[in-house]
């Protein structure tokens, strides 16, 4: 199985494009797969869960085997693996890009579900003549426009063998339209949506960032130190002042022009406080959170892989 998957690009399953054998292979494979899918729809209810679980398990198993199986060391791309162990190891390693493709392609198909749902909701609103159906029209028209302009732009660029469209001067109506809709509107609105949060943070900080308990005080102090440290031109002046003071007290290496205070005077720099907080308190706190997340992902991964996740694959 591994060898078959790994060598699919170079074996009998890879043929000349648009040849008769390709067409026959394509049709037969599609009919077989579609037949299998139709056959699956007739499967009794008690077999459904095992089918999904086995599929999930086999897909995960390839990665687990890749992790556990010994791999040939320093094997060059054109070198033939030596013995069964090396062959399987190389086969597993060669299979990873194929698996990435499979996941990408299936993800792309499934993303279509989101678009379909969105279209269903908004066409539903228009058909039912709801009061806010005007906005649904706006959504559908803008989605259609960018799709049409985007696809035409893509086709024009694919057919542009001479590379004329690399220069903007040679763009046509659809290239310009796509650029206006994508770069001029979509990307800018994307940015606006994210930037709105800044306004809400400011308002929320004013209303909710209050000294009410030890925890909130600790949190606010840490946030203030970090925010002050971000004001680096001001911190530069502050550090210069500290370094001047240190130089006045003949501290070795103190140099206000860098500014570098040297010795104990380092501890008076707010940027150093922030670094200390980040290095000794923020990093361990976040690492602890990360360990928790990783353990959770590992546990969830095992549950999904072994079919123990009731919600995930119960059918």
């Amino acid at each position: 199985m591994m060898e078959l998957l790994a060598q699919v690009e170079y074996g009998p399953l890879a043929v000349k494009p648009y040849s008769t054998e390709w067409l026959i292979g394509l049709i037969v494979t599609f009919l077989l797969a579609a037949g299998a899918a139709i056959g699956l729809s007739k499967v009794p209810a008690n077999f459904r869960r095992p089918i999904v679980s086995i599929g999930t398990f086999l897909c995960g198993l390839i990665y687990v085997l890749y992790w556990l199986w010994p791999r040939p060391v320093n094997l060059k791309p054109d070198q033939v693996p030596n013995g069964m162990v090396e062959q399987v190891g190389k086969g597993l390693s060669d299979t990873l890009p194929l698996l990435a493709d499979v996941a990408n392609i299936l993800t792309s198909f499934l993303l279509g579900l989101g678009v379909y749902s969105l279209a269903r909701i908004h066409f539903g609103k228009i058909i039912k003549r709801q009061s806010d159906r005007g906005f649904s029209w706006v959504l559908i028209v803008s989605a259609t426009m960018i799709s049409v302009f985007g696809f035409v732009d893509y086709i024009l660029r694919s057919q542009d063998k001479a590379g004329k469209l690399v220069d903007r001067e040679n763009w046509g109506f659809f290239n310009v339209g796509q650029d206006i809709m994508f770069d001029g509107l979509l990307l800018q609105m994307d940015s606006v949506m994210f930037s709105l949060i800044a306004f809400f943070i400011l308002s929320a900080a004013y209303r909710a960032f209050r000294i009410r308990s030890v925890e909130s005080t600790v949190m606010m102090a840490s946030a203030l130190v970090l925010m002050l440290s971000l004001l680096s031109p001001i911190m530069f002046q502050w550090n210069t002042m500290i370094a001047q003071m240190a130089k006045g007290m003949n501290i070795p290496n103190a140099d206000p022009s860098i500014p570098y205070p040297g010795g104990f005077f380092h501890n008076l720099q707010i940027s150093d406080w922030a670094n200390w907080v980040k290095g000794n308190l923020q990093t361990p706190a976040l690492r602890a959170v990360d360990f928790g997340i990783l353990l959770g992902a590992l546990a969830m991964g095992l549950r999904l892989w072994l079919g123990l996740e009731k919600g995930g694959v119960s059918v």
């Binding site: 890749y66 990873l96 890009p97 698996l99 990435a100 996941a103 990408n104």
Partner: peptide, 12 residues
Amino acid sequence: NAEGTLQAIGGD
């Protein structure tokens, strides 16, 4: 598919 692609980049 960031996960699969990066795993594959690490492999070959």
